[in-house]
Amino acid sequence: MGLLDYFISSRSKGTANVAKERLQILVAHDRAARDQPSYLPQLQEEILAVIRKYVDVDLSAVSVNYEQEDSHEVLELNIVLPDTIHQRA
């Protein structure tokens, strides 16, 4: 370590705190996904298939969220429709 590096490294904060923040978000996300009922991905696919009969949307248009609260579970379904809805022939 040179003289300059010594003073720089003792001043700059480094990237460990960035790593920690990213990890906290990642792990929270992973854990939430893990605690979901295992039927969710299938449910999402089937709902998507039904919607696609009528509207042209892609996978990301349908999100299924599951949250556990004290005494009950919340299943939240969010469907984003395209700006102009194309009827299928």
Binding site: S9, G14, T15, N17, L23
Partner: peptide, 15 residues
């Protein structure tokens, strides 16, 4: 870790 370049034991344990 002391330089702030690596996650510390406490950081990892917090997670």
């Amino acid at each position: 870790v002391a330089n702030g370049e690596m996650l510390s034991v406490d950081d990892v344990q917090e997670i």
